[in-house]
Design a protein around this nucleic acid. Sequence first.
DNA 1: TTGAAAGCGCTAACAT
DNA 2: ATGTTAGCGCTTTCAA
Lengths: 327, 327
Amino acid sequence: MKDVAALAGVGLKTVSRVVNGEPGVREETATKVRAAIEQLRFRRNDGARLLRQGSRTRSIGLILEDLADPFYALLSRAVEDVARAHGSLLLIGSSAEDPVRERELALDFCARRVDGLIIVPTSGDHGYLADELAAGTAVVCADRPAAGLPVDTVLADNRSGAADGVGHLIRQGHRRIGYLGDALGIYTAIERLDGYREAMAAAGYGIGEHWVAMGKPDPLGVRFALDRMLSGPEPVTALMCGNSRTTVAVLRELSTRPSSPALVGFDDFELADMLPTPVTVVAQDPATMGRMAAGLLFRRMDGEQAQPQQLQIPTRLIQRGSGERSL
Amino acid sequence: MKDVAALAGVGLKTVSRVVNGEPGVREETATKVRAAIEQLRFRRNDGARLLRQGSRTRSIGLILEDLADPFYALLSRAVEDVARAHGSLLLIGSSAEDPVRERELALDFCARRVDGLIIVPTSGDHGYLADELAAGTAVVCADRPAAGLPVDTVLADNRSGAADGVGHLIRQGHRRIGYLGDALGIYTAIERLDGYREAMAAAGYGIGEHWVAMGKPDPLGVRFALDRMLSGPEPVTALMCGNSRTTVAVLRELSTRPSSPALVGFDDFELADMLPTPVTVVAQDPATMGRMAAGLLFRRMDGEQAQPQQLQIPTRLIQRGSGERSL
DNA sequence: TTGAAAGCGCTAACAT
DNA sequence: ATGTTAGCGCTTTCAA
């Protein structure tokens, strides 16, 4: 900028005025300055600008489990759109469900002075964010709450969604219903499992010893779980799956077996309607989740001071066939 | 930092030393400083640090078509992993295939002084990047080249991949093969169409008047295209689809019809193997593409001066059934 | 309409 | 081992 000023034969501030479209520059002078800018290929350094202005950096950070997961990819895109509408850039990072990694990312983002942070919290402790919050960084949680951190949070209606799915199976006449969910320790896994239990209890049905299997959705684990659930004197006649990856793993395993229990999955996925037996699901809405989380974040950044709120997004049962196989 | 220095009763530079773990501070002094840091909840402002150091900002930008698209989501994750390994943060933005938006994003990123930029170029002009290149920002293109911009580029082997798929159909005995691809103007759409033409020509087969349909993969367009291809005196007996979204749209439309032509899709997609007729595809590898693009980018950022290179990632034909229906 | 000086928060280069 | 000064590239303040 100094060079531009020198070349144009004007003061530093005049260049600044031209660059920022501020008034108070004669058109003639402005033209000279623009020529110099062109010639020197000058680009304003926004880092320096932000530093001096001491204002917002017009950037937000998003930390989620895995950017490549379709659910989070959709959520990210919604966040991006809102950020864009507010003139903010988006920094993004995948925690891979690792609290250490999440923390590193969050602190890195804060060191860069993002104006706000949207986090899909891992199961670790989030005390470290309290300082950042106090320092004025807006924080919003999406998909899961951060234990003990008083921030706006957007969740799906996990518990009643799962209960809905299970209730649906019960209405088809099923009494012995198995549940396959994600690793315990993940908030949504626990909530949905609770929903399953509630629905079974509400119907007055007991839960067999081997009917619940929680864990990362790997093929082998799913196979063993199904072995146990589908054998013995009282095999399950229906399955509720706690997330779409598990649903797919279960479908793959079932496709190698003769038996075909009824099945409802939590979380919709692409082509669920095109499979040999179209899959009934309790659908979430990742785009809405992202949009709402970002909306809350920007409200906070705009100075909203109200008590942190917790928003729940309803789930929706989509009947496609796999859940309507009666006994 | 000034406050920390005052509270600890030391000089500014001493605080800086402690914060950055530089040697030359007595443990006793360091302890005092750390106490002050704790008390004041001091966090170094990386923006100021970067400005002063004049060095890299340890951040890169990624601009793609749509973050929510599974292909780009996988690519993004791979880029993120490489960036992480190099200690860089990732700024991300979706161009939505709009050259204006792409340009805005790119220039915003450059104004923030990202060290490098990975772009999935839209069809617009990319001259504006020449200045940034000259200014020292590393640029790499992924998935498509940027016309007239001399930068490293990573592409799938679109043409021979499509030719492979078509050749496969030909080997099954098909002579009348239709092609449905993305909107012309998109680089990959043209390349793959050319591959189809080459394969047909190589076999000595002509291409019927209505056998090629290019456009956004919307259900209506696909329906009309299939109407034309599958009717008349010489209906096609096989289809090649130019991208996974088109493939899915075609499958949906075909599921409402009695006829079932053989089908090969370009680009793999989840559950392709689980559909009633598992789908044969020419698979790309988005993760490898992202990894390679990021690898090239960091090599450039490390000072690599060689001529821009163009890398091609081979595609892979995966036979699953839909492409093996012989006549 | 214009520009000189001060300073954003930090670090490099020198002091001491 | 520690502190002082200057300055990264910009904007703010205030004076001309």
